[in-house]
Design a protein around this nucleic acid. Structure first.
Lengths: 191, 191, 191, 191
DNA sequence: GATGAATGAGAATTCATTCAT
DNA sequence: GATGAATGAATTCTCATTCAT
């Protein structure tokens, strides 16, 4: 039985790559860096992905959509708008705490990768926006620009993540979660 | 007498560079790109800055500290914590509207450049944090972690800027400003 | 299995580089020149040494110290001062005749590279100086400044090498060797 | 009356250039370096010489031939071969002590410049060689290859200069001069 | 499946030289 | 005569990718 059925090489590559991408930036991480981190030859890496660019993209796409799905599920598990938002924010915090490096990777490369997503791909932004738009429609949230409200929720959640990354806040998002829920709710209900 | 008495070459370079850096990212902007944009030889650029790295850094440092000073002044022009925060947020919106590209440049390169700032250099983060810490001390704001509160303010302001950059929100921050003030205040007063 | 099991690439590079360095000077030899001489890409060269500067240095260091060791051994094989000096001078001549280009390379780049040698690295100069200092101590040589005497020996040996390089003397040092021994001995015994 | 009739700009340039060439090497000395050393613009330098290459060459040629002439005169001032050689060696030492930097410059750039000299240009080597050839013809020197003898004289004189340049011998050649005369004579009379 | 040398297309940077003012 | 910005060619070095073994 091949060993790599359990120690999936592809996953090891992704993990090492994400690690380096976050530490040094994507552009400053060379294929050689990744190979060395894995004690593997450069050529061997190309058996697992077609190009560096594709590696970035594939990791991003998979995880980004996976995360969007998770948020979607969490929203569906609650009935009220407030409950849905709270659940999603908790999902953010948990995702960060589970794998801060991956989370930061998604944040950092967004700018370059977002444009490549299929037009109709599920995204965290869409998931949150949908909940907010429905909340406005149902009267649970005051009338307002749903995009602006969505950006406020993201800002309230992601900025603390950035601060944590720079060491200005403790690395543990879970401990801040309740406060973020409260702040986000306050922000979107105060027009 | 210099060739261009009125069109300062250094400024032209900075403007063109920032333009390209925002569009393509710093790493993907070559010195040749900048030279072409200015219809100037690559070599000529090096009369005006010693390296690409230094160009990025010098633009960042000058503008970042300049902006920090502006925020500081705005805070001092008001007496209440709420007034100070409102003035600063308006300062953010105005700065963005005056030169969205420069603002986004500062946002994008922060990550790499922040560490190079002198330890005691004034920063926007410090300016806001000081106002919040004082507000907590004076009782105008509820007791809370001032760093977390600072991050909430930044999140509420900067995330809409990002959305605007992606076209999800109108480019004009001025029109959103009052709402951002209200949201930020709500976020930092809801513990 | 390496592409060339028997034709060590590193050695081929060193040989070609030395060849060019001697012909055109180090500064006027480009990495491209070396690559072309080897029918190899420039990039490929960098697998074998980290920079042009290091290539020069590594070739110099290895050969220079190797040669110093050879001289040292030759000196030890004789008991009298005269015998030691004669053996060393024969070593010079033989080294030149074996690989005139390498010898001239060492001569030419000395000036820039000598300072990089470890303080205690064995050098040809030290080897000769030691023999002379001992000869003075034992009375085999008249009392005199050992550094000056050392320089006389080097002058008597190396200047003919230079003349040979310019074509003013036959390329074969071996044929001049006995005369050089006699001249060097005369120079250091005539105070 | 123009100032530069006395403070000849051309000479100032040559002096500064030689200084830098010896310190850093010709290739590593930029035109900008020279301009800065003279507090003069780069462009202005080009009024005084047509190219960097020509600057090197012109300094070399002028001084080299001038020096050859000096040696020639010194040889003519003596009647015996021994006297002629002694006078010339004293001329070497004096030339070095007068301007060690210039002397070392001539030594260093020889390799590249010698080939550009007119075939019949007077050189120090020719001057010495002529004296030796005549000495052999007249029987004052034993029969021998005059080129080899010439190289011995040069070696005995120039190697101590090199040692002085590296700090292995005192900078003052004059104090070594008598010894060098004796050593050179011993070397060319011992066949 | 793996290796790592080799490729080739740039990238940043330098610098002698020119030239408008 | 002087200035110094500008040019443009060259140089060192990097790196994603390929491929013979």
């Amino acid at each position: 039985m091949p060993r790599h059925r359990f120690t999936n090489t592809r996953d090891r590559i992704e993990t090492a790559a994400v690690h380096l991408f976050v530490d040094k930036g994507v552009a400053d991480t060379t294929v050689r860096d990744i190979a060395r981190a894995l004690e593997m030859s450069e050529g061997a890496l190309y058996r697992h992905f077609p190009s560096k660019e594709q590696l970035v993209w594939q990791v991003f796409e998979r995880r980004y959509i996976e995360f969007a799905g998770r948020l979607q599920k969490l929203a569906e598990s609650e009935s009220s708008t407030r409950g849905k938002l709270a659940a999603m924010i908790r999902g953010f915090c948990r995702a960060y705490d589970e794998n801060p490096r991956l989370f930061r990777f998604l944040l950092f490369v967004q700018h370059d990768q977002l444009g490549k997503l299929a037009q109709d791909a599920p995204t965290p932004v869409e998931a949150v926006r949908m909940v907010i738009a429905n909340g406005i429609a149902s009267g649970e949230l005051p009338a307002q620009n749903p995009d602006l409200a969505t950006s406020l929720v993201f800002g309230v959640v992601l900025q603390p993540v950035q601060f944590a990354a720079y060491g200005r806040l403790p690395a543990d998002m879970g401990s801040l979660c309740d406060r973020l829920v409260a702040a986000a709710w306050a922000a979107v209900t105060t027009v």
